[in-house]
Design a protein around this nucleic acid. Structure first.
Lengths: 203, 203
DNA sequence: GATGCCCGATCGATCGATCGATCGGTAGGC
DNA sequence: GCCTACCGATCGATCGATCGATCGGGCATC
């Protein structure tokens, strides 16, 4: 791992503190202590405290959105495979970087109108990627659900929840959880059995 | 609706504000304004600001726990029926009282050790009720899941998410959402088709 | 190679505002 | 004459933010 610049150290520290104590629960002096700076020096690296929050959100969410859209838009692959990959992306991200997702999910409300619009737009793009895969699956007949939008919301909330309970000290690793969740997701969308024809084992 | 006492008005106002802006994002002067009191008078009805938060959490979560345990413990009913009712309880509560559930879910971290222990104990009881129903279903062979604890977490997060997206202005009412979610829940736990050919005994 | 200057990085001190909380009261029903 | 209900004034602490200043390394000039 490359040595961390001061700016990166600040971002990392802020991420941890915002996730732990919330945006309003974190003072700039705590931020400064965690980053190894004085409170005055903070302002050399960030604009306002809110700017710092926005930067963190943009980085975290932006990466997720790009990866998600990449998976969703790969039309060479079946909706089923794309859904499994989306679940894998979302679950492993939420397990391994719970701070990022917690901040993005919980602190949107503190943003002023302008900043909120940007973050919400990113989130909308991410949800649209999921929606697309669900609808592709429904159109292809491989998924059976009464309401794709509702199923998408249920699915995403289910997967996001991983950040609220998973711990590295539990019995399952991130990839194992992702695997289990992929099964759950396929059940949720009413995916047809894996091999559509009569290859089924165990009668 | 009965006329509201000042104490009730304070609780209701605090609930709204805490849910909207978060505990640390809400000042006692805002609390006082919303309750129609001076900031000094607040202290006639609450102890500290944290006591107020705890009281709100206790009331909201306590009611949910009691109802949940009541459903889960009714062994005259099938695990399937009990699960459907748990989902109905959870989803309609989260749809109709999103403020309560949002505060309970998001603000646990601000509690000091002692208060947190109490709230977490309540939450554990609630989760245990769900766990029991899932395990009853697995034991009876009516649910098929590889990991009841993981499924329970997925299920609860999925249902809790309703508070984060449902709005009375949407196309579906609370009961309709609850119905859809019951279907999703039954898919998640791998419930066998509704009528299992032969008639099931009551037991 | 030494000199002088600039600038990124950092700090102590401090700003006005607001925080949660407490004080000593008062008004009025019982 | 006490108790519930309420308030204006104010407390010390902390909030986010800004100030002027310092320090040291790079860099052009001589």
């Amino acid at each position: 791992m490359a040595t961390q610049s001061t700016g990166e150290r600040l971002h990392a520290a802020a991420l941890t503190l915002f996730a732990e104590r919330g945006y309003h629960g974190t003072g700039i002096r705590q931020l400064a202590d965690a980053a190894g700076l004085s409170s005055a020096s903070l302002y050399h690296y960030m604009g306002t405290k809110e700017d710092l929050l926005v930067a963190i959100m943009r980085a975290s969410l932006g990466e997720l959105v790009e990866k998600g859209e990449g998976i969703a838009a790969d039309l060479r692959r079946t909706p089923r495979d794309r859904l499994v990959d989306l679940v894998g992306l979302h679950v492993t991200t939420h397990a391994l970087a719970p701070d990022q997702t917690r901040v993005v999910d919980d602190e949107v409300r503190v943003l002023s109108t302008e900043a909120r619009r940007e973050v919400v737009a990113l989130r909308d793009r991410y949800e649209a990627a999921w929606q697309r895969v669900l609808e592709d699956g429904a159109a292809a007949g491989s998924f059976t659900m009464t309401d794709p939008a509702l199923t998408r919301r249920a699915l995403l909330e289910m997967c996001s929840g991983v950040a609220r309970w998973w711990t590295p000290r539990g019995p399952l690793g991130p990839d194992e959880v992702a695997g289990e969740y992929a099964v759950l997701a396929l059940r949720l969308v009413g995916a047809r059995p894996r091999r559509v024809v009569r290859d089924t084992p165990r009668g």
